[in-house]
Design a protein around this nucleic acid. Structure first.
Length: 283
DNA sequence: CATATGTCCTGAGAGC
DNA sequence: TGCTCTCAGGACATAT
């Protein structure tokens, strides 16, 4: 579930690791199928041990930790992954531990990757591999920096439903299933309308709603859903779930007009919307 | 080329 | 109570 707000919260939460040096790498033994960590074993240790962390960043839904060697560590949480600097939710699903040392307090820290379902991954990439895998040819412009014009240029030619198109990371990076529904409700756009049927004014509303929803969700440190999986870097719940307008609220009243919120399935994913505030036909 | 569908995974919750 | 089944959706592979 971690989308842009959750991943940005993780990134901010690990700020204390900047300036520290990696002194040891541990891959805890797990009684289930291991996640992908690339490279692995001695090669991983060689790329990381002795390296200093100079910066943290975010690329769409991935956390980036930049090293003084020029390499970057990419943490990709996918569904249930977490990047933490404190005790993880359980010992059982701890996937990677980086032991850190700093010249100033906190002197000793750990940078952890925890993942219950194990769909996430960790990758150490060179500058060239960084561009190849996550450059502008592969990954779209970040949802927080894209301009209204670029958003419509990238999406408007498509015949896909707007909700499905917003999930395409090659077009715009960072939006997932939860925030796509929230953004379209705030924009008053029906989720099944084809992108090529939207007008300039629609794109401007979508762009504004996208910024408003994502920045507010970051302010509340993301959404921890009923399964309780998502946590910030200190293993604390987010708060934005209490501000969801439609997501996972089928049958409840729309916050705008009190009509019952509807759940439909698009591209095998749940979409939530208000049939009154987000009409399919517009006059 | 654009778009659609299948796949991985765990654990919560439903239904019997 | 305890079993089986379904579902949640990140990114990517494969199919149409």
């Amino acid at each position: 579930m971690p989308e842009l707000p959750e991943v940005e919260t993780m990134r901010r939460g690990i700020a204390a690791v900047v300036g520290s040096r990696i002194v040891e790498v541990e891959r805890p033994r797990i009684s289930r199928r291991p996640i992908l960590i690339s490279p692995n074993g001695a090669a991983l240790r060689k790329r990381l041990v002795g390296r200093k962390i100079i910066e943290t960043d975010r690329l769409g839904k991935r956390v980036v930790v930049r090293l003084d060697s020029g390499d970057s560590i990419i943490f990709e949480p996918r569904m249930t992954g977490l990047v933490l600097i404190t005790d993880p939710p359980t010992r059982e699903h701890l996937r990677l531990r980086l032991f850190l040392e700093n010249t100033k307090p906190p002197r000793n820290l750990e940078l952890l990757f925890w993942d219950r379902r194990g769909l996430g991954l960790v990758r150490v990439v060179s500058p060239a591999e960084m561009i190849e895998r996550y450059g502008p040819e592969t990954l779209g412009t970040d949802a927080l920096t894209i301009t209204p014009d670029e958003l419509s240029e990238r999406l408007a030619p498509s015949r896909r439903a707007i909700k499905v198109a917003l999930l395409d990371q090659r077009a715009v990076a960072g939006i997932g299933n939860l925030y796509a529904s929230e953004i379209l409700h705030l924009s008053a756009i029906h989720p099944a309308i084809g992108c090529n049927r939207l007008r300039d004014d629609d794109w401007r509303r979508i762009h504004k709603a996208m910024r408003d929803v994502l920045t507010k969700a970051i302010r509340y440190e993301g959404s921890t859903l009923s399964d309780g999986t998502y946590r910030n870097a200190l293993n604390k719940e987010g708060g934005y779930q209490n501000h969801h307008r439609v997501y996972d609220r089928a049958g409840e009243p729309c916050p705008g007009c009190k009509t019952e919120i509807v759940r439909v399935v698009q591209a095998q994913r749940s979409t939530f919307f208000c049939p009154e505030c987000q009409p399919k036909k517009r006059r």
